[in-house]
């Protein structure tokens, strides 16, 4: 063996050792993260034990802890996320498709792309301020004494849209939507960018139009990535408190938006569905915050029970979305 080879052989053991060390460092990092999570979950569950019952899930808030429930928050959060999703998904995915597939790479688009990442980092309370100005007050325009109301008669009821929107649920959804749009756009852009350009070229070369290429090649390949981005963004929106406080979510509400407190209510009185978006609202997070601030000890248990419900909802929500994503993924066979 040459000197060099002897030296290499001597070094080999050390190289393997470092490799093993690093594996352990990563393993410990994972274990400690899981440990924290387990402790957190155990703590919350411990505190919530005995409080998370049907009364809690089907009752409205109350001054008396034993009678207080999360129903207003459950309905509020569901409506909020529903409208946020409806507003965010088409706009976010559309903007990403435009930026990645159509826009030419000039200074303006570069500026937009750069600012999207900046917007994603803006604290959520700032979006709350924006939401108040833009949606709740609508920049002070239209401010006749009580504002205006646009009434649209539909077959099963009347859609009454107040202008400015005021402190209503829809203003909250608009605000949350603004908050997560940058994240959705960036995630969708990344997913689109991950589709190899050669796939697009091959499609064009076979005489496909831009839309056909996007529809049949690019989107199917990008859907899993886009859905992941949307899920994460909506989960974040679900857990937001600050911007909702700023746009005027109620900390104490004893009714669901539009007085719609059972799914059957929508069938019985469709008018309630039309009223819900413009009603005052609260959310799970707001109720939790409110309970934490209460001096009575029992409210802390309620807060824990509320947190547990939010966690479970998030898990269910994520799981459903992952199933949808995997279905889409199975259709494209790499």
């Amino acid at each position: 063996m040459s000197d060099q080879e002897i030296e290499y052989a001597a070094l080999l053991k050390g190289r393997h050792r470092i490799s093993t060390y690093f594996e352990w460092v990563c393993r410990i990092a994972t274990i400690s993260a899981l440990l924290f999570l387990a402790v957190l979950l155990a703590g919350v569950t411990w505190q919530a034990w005995g409080w998370l019952d049907t009364q809690f899930l089907t009752g409205f808030d109350s001054r008396r802890p034993a009678k207080a429930g999360l129903l207003a928050g459950l309905w509020g959060t569901s409506w909020l996320i529903f409208f946020t999703a409806i507003l965010t998904v088409p706009v976010g995915v559309g903007a990403a498709i435009y930026l990645e597939e159509y826009a030419t790479d000039n200074r303006l688009t570069r500026l937009i792309k750069l600012n999207l990442s900046n917007l994603a980092g803006v604290p959520s309370i700032v979006y709350g301020m924006l939401g108040v100005t833009a949606f709740v007050r609508m920049f002070g325009m239209l401010s006749a004494a009580d504002g205006w109301t646009i009434a649209i008669a539909l077959g099963f009821g009347t859609l009454e849209i107040p202008l400015p929107l005021g402190r209503c649920l829809l203003a909250g959804s608009f605000t949350l939507s603004l908050l997560i749009l940058p994240v959705v756009i960036i995630a969708s852009q990344e997913a689109l960018r991950a589709v190899p350009p050669s796939i697009r070229h091959a499609s064009y070369a076979l005489g496909a139009t831009e839309w056909q290429t996007i529809r049949h090649q690019v989107l199917p390949a990008a859907v899993p990535g886009i859905t992941t981005g949307i899920i994460l963004a909506l989960s974040r929106a679900m857990g937001e408190t600050a911007p909702l406080i700023v746009v005027g979510a109620m900390s104490y509400v004893a009714f669901a938006p539009g007085n719609l407190d059972t799914p059957m209510g929508a069938v019985q009185d469709p008018q309630r569905v039309l009223d819900a978006p413009f009603d005052v609202f609260t959310s799970i997070t707001i109720q939790i915050t409110n309970w934490i601030e209460q001096p009575k000890e029992e409210f802390q248990n309620l807060a824990a029970a509320g947190s547990l419900v939010l966690l479970i909802l998030l898990v269910v929500f994520n799981a459903t979305a992952i199933v949808i994503r995997n279905r889409a993924q199975k259709k494209i066979t790499w």
Partner: peptide, 8 residues
């Protein structure tokens, strides 16, 4: 194309 690119 020079590099074959089947669609997935």
């Amino acid at each position: 194309f020079q590099k074959s690119t089947p669609f997935p």
